[in-house]
Design a protein around this nucleic acid. Structure first.
Lengths: 139, 139
DNA sequence: TCGCTTTTAACGGAAAGTTTCACGCGCAAG
DNA sequence: CTTGCGCGTGAAACTTTCCGTTAAAAGCGA
């Protein structure tokens, strides 16, 4: 089960915004795209989806750009995945009546496993993990 | 993250072969396809992949067909998923150097969660779960 | 040899994913 | 109030994967 780059791009964007959340100002798409290695025009589309999911918000005009809609501690990995793809995990078997009941049960187990772990990871945690690692190199 | 019908078809096929494992004989593709609601010509391709992964084996000629290569207790859900798709879980971020280390860690957590739960489910368990449920209706 | 089955390769339409382009809109500073 | 900067939006072009079909080759048993 291979998922597309879109979710990776989205996660990078949210992580980067999380790392700059303290500073408060809005960040431009261009800066985000160049530092994260994402095609700028594609990133725009992703950010719009993230915005309609209330994960980020935007400011227009001069000094405009994007920033998180809420603190990184309140944004989970699952939130971002659900925004980009429909669900964190989905199989045709889950909605096909032809699929045997015992098999659907297995699919549900997988879905639940992904959901719980994805919901447990917040971007606050990721930022702290990155900061800790950076601190190690400071010694 | 939506996965294709292919894995569902493959799981149904293996489950069905598991349910007939005791009887010993080989089952034809045609029978499998019609009872499980799978396009026969597509099922052929899937079975060949399952065969090359040593999950099923085949017999040619009259009274030919497919049967499991080993007991259902030794076949996990993860085995079938890995056969059909490359891995049970894969994100571009896992292999892209551009992806921040802390993010890759999150991807790994998800991958590991899927792997462990998918490996924990055997087709023996699924068959028993189905049999138990059938027994309930016998009363 | 003949009929039954798997095996293999190739084909093609449909859908999704990825990227780029062009132009309209809103805010704020000058 | 105009102008410049950056977001907003839709659509086009392109690539890749998915899904299923077709047809011919080859093995096995009677």
């Amino acid at each position: 089960m291979k998922l597309s780059v879109k979710s990776d791009y989205a996660a990078r964007a949210v992580l980067w915004l999380s790392q700059h959340y303290q500073e408060g100002g809005a960040r431009t798409v261009e800066e985000m795209a160049s530092t994260q290695g994402i095609p700028p025009n594609y990133l725009v589309q992703i950010l719009i989806e993230l915005k309609s999911a209330q994960i980020v918000k935007s400011q227009r005009g001069k000094a405009g750009g994007y920033l998180l809609a809420r603190p990184p501690a309140k944004i989970s990995f699952g939130d971002v995945l659900r925004c980009v793809h429909g669900e964190t995990f989905d199989s045709p078997g889950l909605s096909d009546a032809q699929c045997p009941a015992e098999l659907r049960h297995a699919w549900r187990q997988l879905r639940d496993a992904v959901n719980t772990t994805a919901n447990a990871v917040t971007f606050q945690q990721l930022v702290e993990a990155g900061a800790d690692k950076a601190k190690m190199y400071d010694i």
